[in-house]
């Protein structure tokens, strides 16, 4: 599987990663070689095999509907890059 530079740009955008133009070609090479490795999966016919999402094939445990958390806003916001009046702030979003 060989990716094109355009593919790498699209993936980087989807993943919201800034990639320096100078590095794009290296990513094209690296990602393509990883995909070659990954393509080895196709050597085996796995049609009809039930996918395994969790190694233990367990089922979900449910918790009671109880409020157990208290307000820790000050503690949580102490590590935030930009807060004001209790809000997290980001550059203006235009809808």
């Amino acid at each position: 599987m060989t990716l094109k530079t355009e593919d790498v740009r699209n993936i980087a955008h989807l993943a919201r990663l800034h990639i320096d133009e100078a590095d794009i070609e290296q990513y094209v090479t690296d990602l393509s070689s990883i995909l070659d490795l990954v393509d080895e999966m196709n050597r085996v016919d796995s049609s009809g095999v039930t996918p395994l999402a969790n190694p233990l094939d367990a089922t979900q445990r449910l918790r009671d509907d109880e409020v157990t958390e208290t307000d820790q806003r000050d503690k949580f916001q102490r590590i935030a890059p930009d807060v004001e009046q209790g809000f997290y702030r980001v550059p203006k979003v235009i809808e």
């Binding site: 993943a15 990602l31 196709n42 796995s46 095999v49 996918p51 395994l52």
Partner: peptide
Amino acid sequence: MIGTYALSAGYYDAYYLKAQQLRR
């Protein structure tokens, strides 16, 4: 980036689903 690509539209079955089958 590889993970994003493997989950993106059109590739999910070929990568992620296939991997989960092999995982079994």
